[in-house]
Design a protein around this nucleic acid. Structure first.
Lengths: 231, 231
DNA sequence: CCGCACGGTTTGTCCGTCAATCTTCCGGTC
DNA sequence: GACCGGAAGATTGACGGACAAACCGTGCGG
């Protein structure tokens, strides 16, 4: 039992803190895409030494959030519409795989939990819902789904994939009227799962990602056009 | 013009060399799963400083080839049968996605190239074929497939996934008589692609991975049982 | 207006240091 | 002889300085 205590007392090495801080800063947009991330800046920002910062950057690079150009250093990755489309394609199959696995392998308790989160989502006010609450619930939904599919590798890859388009997700969620569509799509997922219909769950998940992608890409392309017109 | 020379003479930073060397050493089995990788060892082995080695290890950690335990350092990841199964599940959907995309988007030249590699595979002697040649051809097949599917993200994720089970692949390829099955499965992939049948290519890819997984997992479980009985 | 040299900045790499922690082994105790 | 505990050695995690090479912006000169 002291072991548990100790694990909590020294929960995370400095490196992890920098990793998480940097990841968070990029995903929330505090560091804009294309922005240069010199060592010095990160050292001061996190109060860490260069070695630690560089190791953290290397990890984020492997996750795709950061791109390093030789002799120029690390930059926040820029997500072009084409790349965003690729992200959604991959996310679609990963999510479908998770849905399929969940339908086959999740426990009755986990199925009930998924239903509970879905109903919480459905209970949100149709428009102008609290963005933070909505995001938290969607996160929870996926958390349950990924836990119940009994495939930690899928869960891990899904997490890194979703980090890459966290910014896009925010914009697609902000689309008024999107919530009801989301809930309807996820309801189909949950119903297929409760019917233990693996193929149905697969299809429902893929359809959900497809329509999320459509909304996000439409908005992204509009922004792109606006930016080009202004610039 | 000297610039071009210089760019080729010093193409890659030391860090990349260590990354690749370490990745290669793990994938070819020169570093066995479960083996401890102390900094000092890697420093001597690659003639690099600790900072460089640690950055490289961090990247391999993100790829899943290395696992770091707190205060114990990096170890070569061990792939349990359950984890191997997960790897194959993910590989299946990634490969299927690539096959689907290839059928839809590859150029005529790329389709011809895929056919060419397939016929080279089919021309190998049915048994006792040169392992190295076989592996090279399979690599080339996937290289063409991933290039032609027009989704670099899938290509990248597929590469890291396949690195994780490189050892297993060697064992599954060594199975006598497996080659003819492999060729037959890949032929179905190529034929679906040439017919521009995206759904068929998807299914053919997934089937191929499924049977590769069956062979590999059967062998892996036998090894596992033998190891337990001996140990 | 173009090109070129210059200086500041940043990267890529190496090295030494140091506390905290883990492993091992040794010796004492029951 | 088995077991417990602590000292010794090794390793990690983290810090900071150092330095050559590469890059960038600036300003000078043609």
């Amino acid at each position: 039992m002291t072991k548990d205590m100790a694990l909590r007392v020294v929960p995370r090495p400095m490196r992890k803190q920098v990793e998480e801080g940097l990841r968070d800063a990029i995903m929330t947009g505090r560091f804009a895409p294309g922005q240069h991330l010199p060592d010095r800046l990160l050292c001061e920002l996190f109060g860490a030494s260069r070695s630690v910062v560089r190791e953290a950057v290397r990890l984020l690079e492997a996750e795709g959030l950061v791109t390093t150009y030789p002799n120029r250093g690390p930059f926040v990755s820029f997500l072009s519409p084409a790349e965003a489309e690729q992200v959604y394609e991959v996310r679609g199959v990963l999510e479908a795989l998770a849905g399929e696995g969940f339908a086959q392998r999740a426990s009755a308790g986990e199925r009930a939990e998924l239903r509970r989160v879905l109903e919480a989502l459905a209970a949100l006010p149709p428009r102008g819902a609290d963005q933070a609450a909505l995001l938290a619930l969607k996160r929870e939904f996926y958390e349950v789904l990924m836990r119940g599919c009994r495939n930690p590798l899928v869960a891990r890859m899904f997490e890194t994939i979703i980090n890459r388009n966290a910014q896009l997700r925010a914009t697609s969620l902000s689309d008024p009227g999107r919530l009801s569509g989301t809930v309807a799509e996820l309801r189909r997922v949950v119903e297929a799962i409760e019917a233990r219909d693996a193929a149905g769950a697969w299809q429902a998940c893929r359809d959900h990602v497809r329509s999320a992608a459509e909304v996000a890409l439409r908005i992204l392309r509009e922004h792109e056009r606006a930016a080009r017109a202004t610039g």
